[in-house]
Each structure stands twice: as structure tokens, then as C-alpha cells.
């Protein structure tokens, strides 16, 4: 089945994802190094450390690096999620559709697993197929779907789909070229 090939025979994240992950590891190493220096100096000279400008700089640098790593982690998760759900994620149309779906998921506060299940359900996969793709039991998929319907305030799969279709018919999928 092609959907399965989609997800399993590809390198998740691709070169872009790998670059991001590599950057995170590198920055983690730098942050560790700066933090280590601050800790060593702190144990050497105590609270006076706060008046040493280069230590304050190091502390700021490591905090900034940790924040950057967290942001990159979020970007990586979004990137990989998009690629896991849309093979041709670079095309304008699927990008717009994905943004629309993601906006709905955000407003319903779906978990990562629920987003995954909801996307597959929208794509028309059966519960058994979704369970197989996710490596989980069918009962778990049903539980996820019930949570999705409850959060979205719809009765079932059909209502979920028609909600999206309604939005798509109101707005053009491809943004007008300016």
C-alpha cells in the first residue's frame, strides 16, 4: 500500500532535518562547555562570579544556546510531522492544506498522537491501517479518534472531514500570485 511506503521507506526529516539535528548536537556541546566553565569557576571563586563579565557572558551564551536548541527542536518536530503526512509537502497546495489542518489541530489542542491519527483518518485510512502504520493496537486508535471527535465537537469521521472541506471551498487552496 502506497501510504505505508510513504512513511516507512523515506529518510524522515531529509537533509534539512538532519542539518537541524546536527546543529542541535553541536550547540548542545558548546552549551555544555560554557556551562562547565561557569560551574568550575563558581566553585573556585564563589558568588564573586557574578562580577566577572566574561563569566556572565558565558552564562548568557549557554542560556541562549539552550533556548536556540529548544526552538530548533520545535522546528524539527513540525518539519518531520509535515513530511510524515505529506509526501509532496513542498507543493503550494498541500502546504496550504497542511497549514489549515494544523491550525484546526492547534485550536483543538490535539496531542502529537491524536494529530497523527486525525491526519490518517482525514486521508481515508481505516482504523486497522492506522493501527498498523503507528505500530499500536486498533483499540488505541479508536480511543484516539474518540478524543479527537470530542475535542473537535463533531460526531464522527464524516463530520470531521466535512468541516475541513467546507473551509477549503470557501478559500482558494493556492494563494493568488502577487
Amino acid at each position: 500500500m502506497t501510504m505505508r511506503d510513504d512513511v516507512e521507506n523515506r529518510f524522515p526529516g531529509g537533509a534539512e532535518g538532519l542539518g537541524l539535528a546536527g546543529l542541535m548536537v553541536l550547540q548542545g556541546g558548546c552549551a555544555a562547555f560554557f556551562l562547565g566553565d561557569v560551574v568550575t569557576d563558581f566553585s573556585d571563586i564563589g558568588h564573586q562570579v557574578l562580577f566577572e563579565w566574561h563569566l556572565v557572558l558565558e552564562l548568557l551564551a549557554s542560556i541562549t544556546l539552550v533556548l536556540a536548541i529548544a526552538l530548533e527542536g520545535r522546528m524539527l518536530m513540525r518539519l518531520i510531522r509535515r513530511q510524515a503526512h505529506f509526501r509532496r509537502g513542498l507543493s503550494v497546495a498541500s502546504g496550504a492544506l497542511h497549514d489549515l489542518i494544523e491550525a484546526y489541530f492547534d485550536s483543538w489542542a490535539l496531542t502529537a498522537a491524536e494529530r497523527d491519527v486525525a491526519t490518517f483518518a482525514i486521508k481515508g485510512l481505516s482504523n486497522a491501517e492506522i493501527a498498523q502504520m503507528r505500530g499500536s493496537a486498533e483499540g488505541t486508535v479508536k480511543a484516539h479518534l474518540n478524543a479527537i471527535y470530542r475535542k473537535a465537537g463533531v460526531q464522527g469521521r464524516g463530520a470531521l472531514l466535512s468541516m475541513l472541506v467546507e473551509d477549503l471551498m470557501q478559500e482558494p487552496l493556492i494563494a493568488p500570485q502577487t
Binding site: G17, L76, A113, D116, R134, S136
Partner: peptide, 19 residues
């Protein structure tokens, strides 16, 4: 393995469970 590691990241991003 980099591909295997990225597949695990994908599992985390999508809430999938492959033990």
C-alpha cells in the same frame, strides 16, 4: 544509524510507538 535515529524522532513527533 542516522536514518533509524530520524525514524525514532518521527515517532516522537507523531506520537507513534514502535518498541
Amino acid at each position: 544509524s542516522i536514518p533509524a535515529a530520524m525514524r525514532q524522532v518521527q515517532d516522537i513527533a507523531t506520537g507513534r510507538l514502535h518498541h
